[in-house]
Design a protein around this nucleic acid. Structure first.
Length: 291
DNA sequence: TTGTGTTTTATTGCCTCC
DNA sequence: GGAGGCAATAAAACACAA
């Protein structure tokens, strides 16, 4: 608040009632009017009220302000009347006592039944309409305050939830990082295991070219390849060609047996049962006729 | 004294309920 | 249809700084 009147802060009030008023109320015996339907107090009637309720009911003359009422005691009622008739009615504030009374009544019940309104108006020297307006405005102020309280509460809850959320987010990132590290470790171990398996096969693959490739080839084969129905090496087309060439030449040159290993011998001279594509030589008409 | 910000009092228009 | 409530707002009162 940059300027303006100094009003009691929230800490100095009891539900909108300034502390000094609260003290007054505590020192005073609470008036029966605070309870709807109770008898009125004579203390407010006519003396300090902004508008005389009885006057407003009985006459059409302008309402009398609290300030004019004070002036009236000093200067006389006639002067006041003259002033009133020459000046338009002005808005005037309720007195401290009136507000105090209304506040206490509001604490009892913030709704205003017609009977209570009339009674309050009578006791405070106000028009029932003024009492109704005061309650209406008071409810609006109470609602605004309540909204502010609710806002603060929600804000606090939001901040708390957000803090929890942030913590969970950090925890999640931390766990994610942990998972990555463990995955890396696992991958490294797996690679090491594969490398060690590979090293068992490697010496065969890295043998000197002078060594017999067919042995390497067979050794490199998996057992299941060997067990399968794969065609053996000596059934390859290349092998057939060499056999046919040899046949055409009527085997003019016998290979040096000493230079061949048993495997190669087997390759060049397959078992009788398998030679010539599985047909026994002696049964083959071609072989018989050619020779 | 004046300008400004705040609070209070009162009005207006709309809505709901009986 | 009238009474009453509410939101929005005008207008007055008030306090205070410059």
């Amino acid at each position: 608040m940059a300027g303006g009147r100094v009003y009691p802060s929230n800490n100095d009030t009891t539900d909108g009632v300034p502390n000094n008023l609260s003290v007054l109320l505590q020192n005073q015996r609470l008036h029966p009017l605070f309870i709807p339907g109770s008898s009125p107090s004579p203390s407010f009637i006519g003396t300090r009220s902004m508008v005389s309720f009885e006057d407003s009911l009985k006459t059409n003359r302008p309402k009398r302000s609290i300030f004019k009422m004070f002036d009236e005691q000093e200067n006389g009622y006639d002067e006041y009347l003259e002033e009133c008739f020459h000046q338009p009615e002005k808005k005037r504030r309720l007195t401290v006592d009136q507000i105090q009374f209304l506040e206490k009544s509001f604490e009892v019940d913030n709704k205003l039944e017609p009977e209570r309104k009339i009674q309050l108006a009578k006791d405070l020297g106000l028009q029932p309409r003024q009492v109704a307006i005061w309650f209406q405005n008071r409810r609006a102020r109470w609602k605004t305050k309540q909204l502010e309280k609710d806002y603060d509460t929600l804000l606090a809850m939001y901040n708390s939830l957000k803090a929890d959320y942030d913590d969970l987010l950090k925890e999640k990132d931390k766990l994610k990082e942990e998972v990555l590290q463990l995955t890396d470790k696992l991958q490294t171990k797996e690679n090491e295991r594969r490398n060690s398996e590979f090293s068992d096969v490697k010496p065969l693959l890295l043998q000197e070219p002078s060594q017999k490739p067919i042995v390497v080839s067979m050794a490199a084969c998996k057992q299941e390849d060997i067990d399968s129905d794969n065609i053996p090496q000596y059934y390859s087309d290349e092998f057939h060609s060499s056999l046919l060439e040899a046949a055409d030449s009527s085997y003019p040159f016998e290979p040096d047996q000493s230079d061949l290993s048993q495997d190669e011998e087997d390759s060049l001279h397959p078992p009788a049962s398998l030679s010539n594509f599985g047909f026994p030589v002696e049964d083959h008409p071609f072989w018989s006729w050619t020779y």
